[in-house]
Amino acid sequence: MLRASPAELRKAAQTANVLVRAGINFVCMPALDDADIASLRAESLRRIAQLADQAEQDAASCA
């Protein structure tokens, strides 16, 4: 099992807290290795960009 450092755990907890404060539903997933961490982070960024695009479209349609 790959054990995370305290700094990595703090960063993950901070990220989760930001999502919670923004009201974004999320799923916490364990990472298997460094490559998996990179893949999961890239997917998260892609999904956040998708949410931002959707919010912009919703705002434009309300205006």
Rank of each mutant, 00 (worst) to 15 (best):
M1F: 13
M1A: 14
M1W: 08
L2E: 03
L2K: 11
L2I: 05
L2W: 02
L2P: 01
R3F: 14
R3M: 13
A4L: 15
A4I: 03
A4G: 10
S5A: 06
S5L: 03
P6N: 08
P6A: 14
P6D: 12
P6G: 03
A7N: 07
A7Y: 12
E8Q: 14
E8T: 13
L9V: 07
L9F: 03
R10Y: 10
A12K: 01
A12Q: 04
A12H: 04
A12T: 09
A13V: 10
Q14I: 04
Q14R: 14
T15A: 14
T15H: 13
A16R: 14
A16V: 05
A16T: 08
A16W: 09
V18E: 13
V18K: 15
V18I: 15
V18Y: 14
L19H: 04
L19W: 05
L19D: 02
L19V: 08
L19P: 00
L19F: 14
V20G: 04
V20S: 09
V20Q: 15
V20P: 00
R21F: 01
R21C: 02
A22Q: 10
A22P: 00
G23I: 04
G23C: 05
I24E: 02
I24L: 12
N25A: 13
N25H: 11
N25D: 15
N25Y: 07
F26P: 02
V27E: 15
V27P: 00
C28P: 00
C28K: 07
M29W: 05
P30W: 04
A31C: 11
A31N: 00
L32I: 05
L32A: 12
L32M: 08
D33I: 02
D33P: 00
D34S: 12
A35V: 11
A35E: 15
A35Y: 09
D36W: 06
D36M: 06
D36Q: 05
I37F: 02
I37G: 00
I37Q: 00
I37V: 15
A38F: 06
A38R: 07
A38Q: 10
S39E: 11
S39I: 01
L40F: 07
L40P: 02
L40A: 01
R41K: 12
R41T: 10
R41M: 07
A42V: 06
A42G: 05
E43I: 07
E43Q: 14
S44D: 02
S44N: 10
S44F: 05
L45C: 01
L45S: 05
L45P: 01
R46Y: 08
R46S: 14
R47A: 11
R47H: 11
I48S: 04
I48T: 07
I48Q: 08
A49P: 01
Q50M: 08
Q50C: 03
L51W: 08
L51Y: 12
A52E: 11
D53C: 10
Q54N: 09
Q54G: 04
A55V: 06
E56Q: 13
E56A: 15
Q57T: 08
D58P: 01
D58G: 02
A59G: 06
A59H: 06
A60K: 13
S61V: 09
S61L: 14
C62I: 09
C62S: 11
C62V: 14
